[in-house]
Simulated scan of single mutants.
Amino acid sequence: MTATRWTFSGRILGVGTTSGVRLVVGVWDTSPLGSFADVMVEQAGGHRILLAPSQEVADFVAGTYTFDETRIEPVEVELPGDARMEVVSSSLSLVAALGRRTAMGWLLRGIPRRVAANPLFSTATDPVARVILRGVRTRGTAGQGRREYYGATDVRAVTSVSGRLDGVDLGTLTAVDPPASFGFSSTPRRPSLTQVVTTIRQR
């Protein structure tokens, strides 16, 4: 890709588990790489794994974030009945039950999408997000001289989670704490599914 600006529109699921594993699932409806899903996993000991459906996706995501291991494997995501999210890959099976829209979600719904998706808006809201939502940034630096901007348009709570990673039970739902250390990211401490437009610029 030769563009210096890339836009990804979709959802980000961020959850913690009692096993100490924290997961960030990106489900991208539109992007320069087409429609795809990927998973960032941080194990209790800090080992960071990227699950990506293709080498092209892996190269782009790993150029933006930092991982200790990358696995190329199909990543399938379904939202049956809009009540839960199911994620399946060769390494991972995950089911997250979705709750109601949060108070922050209702607030974001009142902001026009074109405004929320504008990097200038993300820049303006970043200082506020840092204070009121621990673990959240709406702008920041990424790998390879890139800058990243998150424009959230809705948030739903996650009420429970179950799954297995490499055949090992993940345990039950808990906060995303400590924050994942992939680099710049925007996963709230409270487990949630966030509707988002992500803009990445090459400096």
Rank of each mutant, 00 (worst) to 15 (best):
T66H: 13
T66D: 12
T66A: 12
T66C: 03
F67G: 07
F67Q: 07
F67P: 00
D68Y: 01
D68F: 00
D68H: 11
D68R: 01
D68G: 05
D68W: 00
E69V: 06
E69C: 04
T70W: 02
T70H: 01
T70G: 02
T70V: 15
T70Q: 07
T70P: 03
R71I: 15
R71P: 08
R71G: 02
I72S: 05
I72G: 04
I72E: 08
I72Y: 03
I72R: 06
E73W: 07
E73M: 04
E73R: 05
E73F: 02
E73L: 05
P74H: 09
P74E: 09
P74D: 10
P74I: 04
V75A: 10
V75P: 09
V75K: 13
V75L: 07
E76Q: 13
E76F: 04
E76V: 13
E76I: 10
E76D: 14
V77H: 00
V77T: 03
V77I: 12
V77P: 00
V77Y: 00
E78R: 13
E78M: 04
L79C: 06
L79D: 06
L79N: 09
L79V: 07
L79W: 04
L79R: 13
P80Q: 02
P80F: 03
P80S: 06
P80E: 03
G81Y: 01
G81A: 06
G81M: 01
G81K: 01
G81L: 03
G81V: 00
D82Y: 07
A83Q: 15
R84Y: 06
R84N: 02
R84E: 15
M85L: 15
M85C: 04
E86A: 00
E86N: 01
V87E: 04
V87S: 04
V87M: 05
V88S: 15
V88Q: 15
V88A: 15
V88Y: 06
S89D: 11
S89F: 08
S89Y: 06
S89N: 11
S90E: 15
S90Y: 00
S91E: 14
S91N: 09
S91G: 12
L92C: 12
L92F: 07
L92S: 09
S93L: 05
L94W: 11
L94Y: 10
L94T: 10
L94E: 13
L94V: 12
V95E: 13
V95T: 15
V95G: 02
A96F: 07
A97Y: 05
A97L: 13
L98E: 05
G99S: 03
G99R: 03
G99M: 07
G99L: 07
